[in-house]
Computed example of a mutant assay.
Amino acid sequence: MKATVAICTHNRAADLNEALQSLLHQSFDQSYEVIVVDNRSTDQTKQVVLDFQGMIDIPILYLYEERLGLSVARNRAIREAKGEYVLFLDDDAVASEDWIRGIVALFDRDPRIGCVGGKIVPAWEGSAPPWLLPENRTLYTILDYADEIVEMRKPAIPFGANVAFRKSLFASIAPFREDLGRVGSNLLSSEEAELIDRIRAKHAVYYTPHASVLHKIPRSRISRKWLLRRIYWQGVSSAVSSKKKAGIFLKSLVKLPVYALLTIVFLYDKRKSFRNISKITYNNGQIRGVLRMYQ
């Protein structure tokens, strides 16, 4: 089998239905399967998958994963996948009609490629916030890396809403770290960056704008409060995944008073003030990430 489309989901039955519906219109004409990993949902997720099985003439596997955690669910999908390539689509994303074809074609042209990421276009509920700083756009899982197919050089990485892996590389490379990635309502992350960093040791990582997805951003996330929470957990994630925890801890302690002072100095400028508050929040997260390893 050429490809496996994997969707990991937790209590997003309505969004999952739209993600699955987008697979009905794929231009890909080779064999593929769909795996839905239900990560302890309590809504109508299973019924959505069962209903979808009657709409499409391809294998669809429903898996219930009791152990909560996005990395846990993704690793379950990787273990169960029969495809040569494993394509991850977020449960709140909608694939373009050339999504599968674009990713598979890129893998097929070069055996050195171990990971492929595609363009991720935001679908704001309402409109994009005018206060969003350019450096914070990626925290909303927005990716527009290039206008053509290119290799992604470190530190650039694809995002999990639209990322694919060559299945065979997991015979020698461990999959997602399960101490990273979202679990329930926390926003722990960096599992993708950590895995891709290891993949780069032997394989190339590529980006294609020709296999895009639309990623929903609900109104509940379009606030400075949510963004600061996301930044905090990014700091936690960075510290947990790092091998240089002592250095991170000391640097964060030094930086905090500096950013606090700059916040006061730039109170008249809302953008600069928020930028410094963001840095304080991030460094607080890094300190928390180091300390949680010793709890």
Rank of each mutant, 00 (worst) to 15 (best):
D51C: 04
K46C: 12
D57L: 10
L63C: 11
F52Q: 11
L63R: 07
V49G: 01
V34E: 03
D38A: 06
V34Y: 06
M55S: 13
R40G: 12
L50W: 11
Y62K: 05
D43P: 14
V34W: 08
I60G: 02
Y64A: 10
G54L: 05
F52D: 12
I56G: 03
Q47K: 15
T45E: 06
Q53S: 12
K46F: 11
D43R: 05
D57A: 15
Q53I: 08
D43T: 10
D51H: 10
P59F: 06
L50V: 13
D38W: 09
I60H: 01
T42F: 09
I58K: 02
R40E: 01
V36I: 13
L50K: 01
K46S: 12
L61A: 09
I60M: 10
I60A: 08
G54K: 13
K46Y: 09
Y64M: 06
M55G: 07
I60N: 02
Q53M: 15
V49K: 01
V49L: 05
Q53Y: 00
D38L: 06
R40D: 04
P59C: 08
Q53L: 11
L61R: 01
N39P: 01
F52W: 00
I35K: 06
I56K: 08
Q44H: 13
Q47G: 08
V49N: 00
F52R: 07
V49F: 05
V48C: 04
D38I: 09
Q44G: 09
R40K: 09
K46E: 15
V49W: 03
V37C: 08
M55N: 10
